[in-house]
C-alpha cells in the first residue's frame, strides 16, 4: 500500500488549516478550556509516518498530539468536541486536548506526561506480537522525552523482546522554552541511542514529508516482518508557543529570525514546490484543500457547540467499571 504524494500534501494542508483555525477560535472565544499544544510547522512528521501505517496499526503520542490523531484518521468532529469539553468528545470530555483516542482509526492514546506513551506504545506493540498479529505501533515523542528514564527503559525492553514498535522522536529543538543545548550534552545524538540499544535508527529531515514517508515505510516494514523495533529521529520546528495559540518569539528564549528561518522551511511549501513540476494544478488543488478543510473545521465547531456538556451526574462515570 502506497500513498500518493499529493495525498501527503493534502493531509498536511488539512492539519495546518484545522490547527490554525483552532488557534484563532481558541484565542478569540476562550471557550475551549483545555491547554492546547499545536503542531503548526511540524505536520510532515505525523503525516509521513501515519501514511506508512495501516488502519489497524496503532499510534501513540504525547501532549502535542492533534496532528498524529488527524493523520492517523482520527475523527475531527470528536476531537473538536473534546476541546470544547462536550459529551460527544473522543474522550467524553474527560481527557481534553492532551488525552485523545480513536480506537477505530488506530489512534491508541495520547498523554501529557513526558515519555509516558513511549512505554504504553511499546506495550501495545508487544501485545500484538504476543498474540501473533502483525499490527505494529508507532509512538511519537519529543527530544525532551528522550531525556526521561522511561525512554531508555522502553528502548531496552523493545530491543530485548523484538517488539514491533517504531519510536518516532520529533526533535523540534525545544522542551517548553529550554533549547536542546541546555538539556543534552554537546555532540549528543538522539538517534545514536538506537544503535546503543541495538536497533536500526535513522535521522531524517522532518520537514520533508516524502523523506519521512520513505523512512517510515522502511521502519514499518521492518517491524511488521518481526525484526524488532525501529527508531526515527525527525528534525523539525514548532512555530507557535509551547502551549497555547500564540507566537512567542522575541520574548527571551528564541528570536523572530530563528522562527522565520524555519517558516522559510515550511513542510507544506516545500512539498508543494516539489510537486509543482510533476503534478499540474497542484497550487489550485492546495487552495481547494485549504478551503475544504476550513469548512470541515467550521462544521465540526458548529457540531461541537451544539452538543451537550456531560451531565454533572456522570462525574464519576468511568472511574471504575459501571
Amino acid at each position: 500500500m502506497t500513498t500518493e504524494p499529493e495525498e501527503l500534501l493534502r493531509a498536511m494542508v488539512r492539519i495546518r488549516a484545522v490547527e490554525e483555525g483552532l488557534a484563532d477560535v481558541y484565542r478569540e472565544e476562550q471557550e475551549m478550556r483545555t491547554p492546547v499544544h499545536f503542531s503548526i510547522g511540524q505536520e510532515a512528521t505525523a503525516v509521513g509516518v501515519c501514511a506508512a501505517m495501516r488502519r489497524s496499526d496503532l499510534v501513540y503520542s504525547g501532549h502535542r498530539c492533534h496532528a498524529q490523531y488527524l493523520a492517523k484518521g482520527g475523527d475531527l468532529t470528536a476531537m473538536v468536541a473534546e476541546l470544547y469539553g462536550r459529551e460527544t468528545g473522543c474522550s467524553g470530555g474527560r481527557g481534553g486536548s492532551v488525552h485523545l483516542v480513536d480506537l477505530e482509526a488506530g489512534f491508541g492514546a495520547s498523554s501529557a506526561i513526558l515519555g509516558e506513551m513511549i512505554s504504553v506504545g511499546t506495550g501495545a506493540a508487544w501485545a500484538s506480537a504476543v498474540a501473533g498479529r502483525d499490527d505494529v505501533a508507532a509512538t511519537f515523542f519529543g527530544d525532551g522525552a528522550a531525556e526521561e528514564g522511561v525512554f531508555h527503559e522502553s528502548l531496552n525492553f523493545a530491543a530485548l523482546r523484538r517488539v514491533p514498535v517504531v519510536f518516532v522522536c520529533e526533535n523540534n529543538g525545544y522542551s517548553l522554552s529550554s533549547p536542546l543545548s541546555s538539556r543534552q550534552p554537546a555532540g549528543n545524538s538522539i538517534t545514536r541511542w538506537a544503535d546503543r540499544y541495538g536497533m536500526p535508527g535513522v535521522r531524517v529531515d522532518g520537514n520533508d514529508v516524502f523523506g519521512v514517508y520513505a523512512a517510515a515505510t522502511e521502519a514499518v516494514r521492518w517491524c511488521r516482518e518481526g525484526r524488532g523495533p525501529y527508531f526515527l529521529e525527525l528534525t523539525t520546528y514548532r512555530w507557535r508557543e509551547h502551549v497555547g495559540p500564540n507566537w512567542d518569539y522575541d520574548r527571551d528564549h528564541r528570536s523572530k529570525a530563528e522562527v522565520d528561518s524555519w517558516i522559510a522551511r515550511c513542510p507544506i511549501t516545500r512539498a508543494t514546490e516539489e510537486l509543482r513540476e510533476r503534478v499540474p494544478g497542484i497550487d489550485r488543488a492546495r487552495a481547494q484543500w485549504e478551503t475544504e478543510s476550513r469548512e470541515e473545521l467550521a462544521k465540526a465547531i458548529a457540531v461541537a457547540k451544539a452538543s451537550p456538556f456531560p451531565a454533572v451526574e456522570t462525574l464519576l462515570s468511568g472511574a471504575y467499571e459501571d
Binding site: G108, E116, I118, S119, G121, A124, A125, A127, A131, A137
Partner: peptide, 14 residues
C-alpha cells in the same frame, strides 16, 4: 517505570 506503562499498553490490547 517503563514496564508499568508497557503493561498498560499490553492490557489495552488484550
Amino acid at each position: 517505570n517503563a514496564f508499568a506503562g508497557i503493561a498498560v499498553g499490553a492490557a489495552s490490547q488484550g
